[in-house]
Amino acid sequence: MLVIGERINGMFKDIANAIKTGDPTAVQEWAKRQEDNGAAWLDINCGPASDDPVSHMKWLVEVTQEVAKAPLALDSTNYDAIEAGLEICKQPPLINSVPAEWPKMERVFEMAAKYEAGVVGLAMNEQGIPKDAESRVALAMELCAAADSYGVPMEDLYIDPLVLPCNVGQDHGPEALETIRQVKTLADPPPRTTVGLSNISQGTKNRELINRTFAVMGIAMGLDTAVADADDDELMEAIACARIIMNLDIYCDSFVEVYKDRW
């Protein structure tokens, strides 16, 4: 599993403040810090409070790219903001995200094809998040079909089964994991998979333990990526170890360092 570093998000005070004042220091510090600890992408999200997501997204992309080599994940429900980011990304980013709904899929997959970007596809639609794996997989299939019809290859589609906090939606845990397993059988080559890792531990005690436990369980099921805290050393170590056990990386004594040393 590769990590999409979650920290450049306007929900965090220091990033919100950076957006407000136009001082890129905090953004750039987090970009480097996440990259140094093994993030494979950097998530870019202006946060819910942004009054001008288009220009804020552009600014975050610009200042992040000044210091970081990692590709970005443009995270917004405002597709104009995403397109503004796509236009200036130096390498193909991820679009985070689109639900299995028309006409949203049309807009997003058209952009993805044009900019050769990856897409995070959410296993949900107008009716919300399904309760069981079966319904989630059905929505994943709709996303696969839509991506294919716009010429977006399966390797560029990242299905998110949607994870709920384990204290309030405990019954969703096994369904999300089962969805990951089944999504991998939908096509050959299969679509990739992703989750918003920290969702599993919202409002719980001992969040880091829950996050990394879910991460390694997800990896065993075929989880390819997660939006997660790349600054959490124990999480990154657990992922590195799970990748060895799943034969995804060739073992060597320095396997943790090798996993983190992406750039």
């Binding site: 073992y251 060597c252 004594d253």
Partner: peptide, 10 residues
């Protein structure tokens, strides 16, 4: 030994 090969490069 592939593990040693990798470690040696590192």
């Amino acid at each position: 030994d592939i593990n040693i090969a990798k470690q040696l490069n590192i």
